[in-house]
Design a binder for these strands. Structure first.
Lengths: 110, 110
DNA sequence: CACCTTGCCTAGAGAGTCGAGGTAACGGAG
DNA sequence: CTCCGTTACCTCGACTCTCTAGGCAAGGTG
């Protein structure tokens, strides 16, 4: 419910955002999207069509693993958990983001 | 000569970076890449395979216009200049970047 | 019963970057 | 004179990722 235009900027950052969200503990997909929207005051709008493929991708890369479980609402949910490799990847991507955003901001924001 | 891995993060920011570079005055493609690398201390590596298509794109969108000229080295160069629409676009993209990077940093950089 | 929310999934389209190539002209080194 | 590095532009195809727009299912509420 926030941004209208396609978020080309999100490219490459979604993985890190998801990994970061999982750092706090296992979550299911829907909750991850909610958490990210909440954490950014609705400024980031995570589309399901982006999120689920991303989760699948990261599972294939063994950055996260999944198991079926039950939510508090007694609903069948797929819980994702950060693996050791995922933790390492999060560190790498966080550093990459920090360096990149610093560089870009330095150019753009006078 | 800086980064080795594909810069997925660059997605969507290249336009803004180029527009910003042209804000200081007309430049040709090669010089734009050099200027951006210099401005970021070599941390941003602008590939020609990304740059020239980007320039072509932005010219089609009338954010920049081009004319052939001669460099100080007496070489044939294509000089790009910011249009009024390009200036407006730069403002929009700068704002979008500021909002986005703030949101992401807020999540990632604890 | 209809409807909203939770919750997961997928196919296809579209956009953009990158690697790897090619062309051309100049200047300096050997 | 030839070779090579630099300047300078261009393009194709592969690849990756996001987004739109659907679909499915179950639960609660009016």
């Amino acid at each position: 419910m926030a941004s209208k235009e396609p978020n080309s900027l999100l490219h490459g950052t979604l993985d890190a955002l998801v990994l970061k969200t999982l750092e706090a503990g296992p979550q299911h997909g829907y909750a991850i999207a909610r958490a990210l929207e909440a954490a950014t005051g609705g400024r980031l709008d995570i589309e399901e069509g982006s999120l689920y493929p991303a989760l699948y991708r990261m599972e294939k890369r063994a950055w996260i693993d999944a198991e079926w479980g039950t939510s508090e609402l007694q609903r069948r949910v797929k819980l994702y958990r950060l693996t050791r490799a995922g933790r390492a990847q999060l560190v790498r991507e966080t550093e990459a983001w920090a360096a990149f955003s610093r560089a870009v901001s330095q150019v753009l924001l006078t």
